[in-house]
Design a protein around this nucleic acid. Structure first.
Length: 263
DNA sequence: ATGACTACTCCCAGTAGA
């Protein structure tokens, strides 16, 4: 069972890349972020033609998330609980049936939070505390659970080329990193770090200033696993090669292989 | 470094991203 996450930075701009990569990677479930379109504008036919079920939670211009799955969805739920006034399309949960029980996958696009002296940063921290509460509740079920997406969090200094330049950035501020650590404190496992402790495992390179060519990247796209999922973790990969394609997203796909039997 | 890219939008200069 391969589960992937990718911030595509506009699915309509990236549909050719997405179709090619789906063929290369052959994931069973995919979490997409920043689709940047309403549900009706999502290019679902091209993806359904590859055998995927498609569920979107879109928004005009900004944000927007989608789930693709070769297994049928038992249920899908948009929006993260805890703030009825939050209209950003940043969260979509899907449940699929396994041979024994279910697998729950939450696709998330966590707020960026910059500039940190504006209301954007408190919004980010509140969103993270809502995610913490969601995770606490879901972990009580003791089921395979995957939180996958663009977290906009640099967890540690080894996850950014020049950490000193990022100390006051919303992606790397102490309060941001502490909130991410509290997720791990609940018993969630950072999948990449479970198999690879090397520095520089980047998932994002800015478009500006030759960041890709200089390998000035960030690790901000993550898959967090409940104990029932991390027990089944076999492999993790970062498909950084797509960043070298023409007109790429600034993020690249990250995937995990879980040894789970399907029905 | 006032910067750099890319994508969006009541169409095109302003906003957002990270």
């Amino acid at each position: 069972m391969r589960i992937a996450t990718w911030n595509v930075n506009s699915v309509r701009q990236r549909i050719d890349h997405l179709v090619t990569w789906l063929g290369d990677c052959a994931p069973d479930i995919v979490c997409l972020q920043e689709i940047k379109c309403v549900d009706e504008a999502f290019p679902r036919e091209a993806i359904e033609a590859l055998g995927y079920n498609v569920v979107t939670h879109g928004q005009k211009t900004f944000n927007g998330v989608a789930l693709l799955s070769k297994l049928p969805f038992e249920e899908t739920t948009p929006r993260l609980a805890g703030d009825d006034d939050d209209v950003h399309a940043r969260f979509l949960e899907g449940v699929v049936t396994l041979k024994h029980g279910v697998l729950r996958v939450a696709c998330l696009y966590l707020p960026n939070g910059n500039p940190p002296e504006t209301e954007k940063y408190p919004y980010k921290l509140k969103w993270m505390s809502r995610l913490l509460e969601y995770s606490k509740q879901r972990l009580l079920a003791e089921e395979p659970l995957v939180l996958a997406g663009d977290f906009n969090v640099i967890p540690k200094a080894e996850d950014v080329h020049n950490p000193a330049a990022w100390v006051n950035d919303a992606l790397f501020r102490p309060a941001t990193r502490e909130s991410f650590q509290s997720l791990l404190g609940l018993g969630l496992t950072d999948a990449l770090r479970a198999v690879n402790d090397a520095p520089g495992q980047y998932t994002f390179w800015d478009y500006q200033a030759g960041a890709w060519q200089k390998n000035h990247g960030l690790r901000i796209d993550h898959l967090l696993l409940s104990p029932q999922a991390s027990d089944r973790l076999v492999d993790v990969g970062i498909d950084s090669y797509v960043r070298a394609w023409e007109k790429p997203s600034d993020h690249v796909p990250v995937w995990i292989d879980l040894d789970l039997e399907t029905a």
